[in-house]
């Protein structure tokens, strides 16, 4: 594998979990709920997926199980913020910590174990191309499903009725309610959707790219996801750019170091963050447009109509 091949393949593998979780978070935030518990949901998804692969060897079942496990956690979050009317920031942090804790506990006896990697797609002709073949066309299927999902979500949020309703609920829950939509119900479903994707994302990280379980292995990616969504101004196409950019920068950093170039490594380590923030900020420079894009009721408690 040449360094160019690794730059491509490493970027795809590093960006995929970020993209999957960020797409879910876009939907949740578009519905007006700030979900800060992504890290915990990814952890729960990761450990569940690991246990499933370890016991059954089925990676697809594991991805689904990871998603479902995170849905359970997201329901806890949804109940707290939608029914108990808890502050979204505090509730999100609490549920996130809960998820990280549960994952550590559930994975205790699997700590530092290893599973077989997920099967990689072999596309006739394409996978055999030099450089690009092993770089682009030699990965587990979810690597390709993630951008596909992004396209679907982009279309759905922009043009479909479901998407418009979700956005309406996030912009003005009172108006949505007035025209007959069940605000709490829609937000509940959005949170579950976001939870599912966060779980799948953690599952992918664990059983498709790392193949090992260790407590804390999500290692802050849940926070990067949240930052990506905000810096991308809640727009799906920019989330896609941000995720791949971050992935590429985090791989490039390691490649520059391994070339033996004398750059302080701490500076290199911070480059993915700097590049992503700068790039996405430039895209989002127009303050008026940012305000237009931010869901107006994001983070606000919806008291309902009494």
């Amino acid at each position: 594998m040449t360094w160019l091949t690794f730059l491509i393949s490493g970027t795809l593998l590093a960006a995929t979990p970020l993209l999957i979780a960020a797409l879910g978070e876009v939907v949740v935030e578009k519905s007006g709920v700030l979900n800060l518990s992504i890290e915990g949901m990814m952890s729960v998804g990761a450990v569940t997926a690991f246990i499933v692969v370890f016991e059954t060897g089925n990676h697809w079942l594991a991805l689904a199980a990871g998603g479902v496990a995170a849905i359970v956690l997201s329901v806890v979050f949804a109940c707290v913020v939608l029914f108990a009317l808890g502050n979204q920031v505090v509730s999100g942090l609490a549920v996130g910590l809960l998820g990280i804790g549960i994952a550590g506990l559930a994975g205790g006896s699997y700590e530092n174990m290893t599973v077989a990697p997920m099967a990689r797609l072999q596309i006739p002709f394409l996978s055999e191309l030099p450089v690009i073949g092993p770089g682009l066309f030699n990965h587990p299927l979810p690597v390709y499903l993630a951008p596909l999902l992004a396209v679907v979500l982009w279309w759905a949020l922009k043009y479909s009725k479901v998407g418009l309703v979700v956005r309406a609920v996030g912009e003005s829950p009172e108006s949505a309610n007035a025209v007959g939509y069940n605000v709490v119900g829609i937000r509940f479903l959005a949170i579950m959707f976001g939870g599912f994707l966060a779980g799948v994302s953690g599952a992918f990280l664990c059983v498709a790219s790392s193949t090992l379980w260790a407590d804390g292995m999500v290692a802050g990616r849940g926070w990067i996801v949240i930052a990506l969504v905000v810096f991308a101004m809640w727009r799906v196409e920019r989330v896609v750019i941000g995720a791949y950019l971050f992935g590429a920068a985090s791989i490039a950093e390691l490649l520059v170091q391994s070339a033996g170039i004398s750059v302080p490594s701490q500076l290199m380590t911070s480059i993915p963050y700097i590049v992503t923030i700068v790039a996405v900020s430039i895209l989002s420079m127009d303050g008026k447009r940012v305000r237009l894009n931010a869901p107006v009721s994001l983070g606000r408690v919806y008291l309902g109509t009494h």
């Binding site: 690794f6 590093a14 790219s209 790392s210 260790a214 802050g220 490649l255 391994s258 033996g260």
Partner: peptide
């Protein structure tokens, strides 16, 4: 070739560093 990952714990990043 030395690659500093600048973290005590991030298995996925360590693996990327190894691949690099």
């Amino acid at each position: 070739k030395i690659v500093w990952v600048n973290t005590w714990f991030d298995p996925a990043k360590e693996q990327d560093a190894a691949r690099a």
